[in-house]
């Protein structure tokens, strides 16, 4: 197979993969973010304590998380047909990808939101803040770096899943690799596909890390650009630990624990 023959195939497959990943990510956020927050809020002793709702949501999330994705894909074929009118192609795959990704992302959001210091919630309550205030002004902004890190993980998982969806006729790079690389022994095409997947995953990870680091910089001693100039002039300890930013990128909530230099 020549390069000019491969080119349109690769381009279409790439676009299909991006289409699947993009839309399933959108649905993962729309579904997973509120679900993750609700899992925290309805927990025992939390703002909207509701044991029944908490248990039901938890069970649904666990169900979605414990099913191997390939089973979910096959199991959801009738449902996909019902929702988008077809059981093959990228649109059908988005249905399964979204349903797989929502509980995955929800758990990551839950973990991120749980990391937020309860004292901050109390502070907002002591000012007269209600549940919405707590969620929108405290929990989400404080958990944002972790949520973004979780989103990166989710997108990368979705890239992998979308390749799997290719195996059952979902289209995209996975489909290309199987249909040409595996079944027609087009090793060259298969290798290019693999390289493309690696490139996409790497770019997503780097982008995600960049955003997380930017967000976490506010909470760490490594100051945001404006403050950096001031710190250079005054505080020495800030320069001492370049790894502090990297650490807080992993666990931003712990940034509060960094001892004061005072």
């Amino acid at each position: 197979m020549t390069w000019s023959e491969m080119q349109p195939l690769l381009r279409d497959a790439c676009l299909d993969t991006l289409f699947m990943v993009w839309w399933s990510t959108v649905y993962a956020i729309i579904g997973g973010l509120p679900l993750g927050i609700l899992l925290v809020l309805t927990d025992r002793g939390a703002l909207l304590q509701n044991v029944v709702v908490n248990k039901v949501l938890g069970a649904i999330v666990n169900l979605g998380r414990s099913l191997p994705f390939i089973i979910l894909l096959v199991w959801l074929i009738p449902f996909s047909r019902f929702v988008v009118g077809t059981s093959i192609g990228p649109s059908a795959a988005v249905v399964a990808l979204a349903i797989g990704a929502i509980p995955f992302f929800a758990r990551l959001v839950e973990t991120a939101v749980r990391e937020v210091d309860h004292g901050l919630v109390e502070a907002a309550q002591s000012m007269g803040g209600g549940t919405w205030t707590v969620v929108l002004k405290v929990l989400l902004p404080q958990a944002l770096p972790s949520v973004v890190a979780g989103l990166t993980t989710t997108v990368i998982a979705l890239i992998g899943y979308s390749a799997m969806a290719g195996a059952v006729g979902g289209g995209g790079l996975g489909n290309l690799a199987i249909a040409y690389g595996f079944q027609r022994h087009e090793t060259g095409l298969m290798n290019i596909t693999i390289v493309l997947l690696i490139v996409i995953v790497t770019v997503v990870q780097l982008l995600g890390d960049l955003v997380v680091r930017r967000l976490a910089a506010r909470g760490s001693r490594q100051a945001a650009p404006v403050g950096l100039r001031r710190l250079r002039r005054t505080a020495v300890p800030a320069q001492r630990k370049p790894e502090a930013a990297a650490r807080s990128a992993v666990a931003p909530a712990s940034a509060e624990d960094v001892p004061d230099g005072s």
């Binding site: 004292g119 109390e122 944002l144 931003p252």
Partner: peptide
């Protein structure tokens, strides 16, 4: 909540939002 907003509270661990 209205009544609380007229009572200030200060905490041992400050409880400031690191994101702001």
């Amino acid at each position: 909540r209205k009544a609380r907003s007229r009572i200030g509270m200060v905490f041992q661990h400050f409880n400031l939002l690191s994101s702001r």
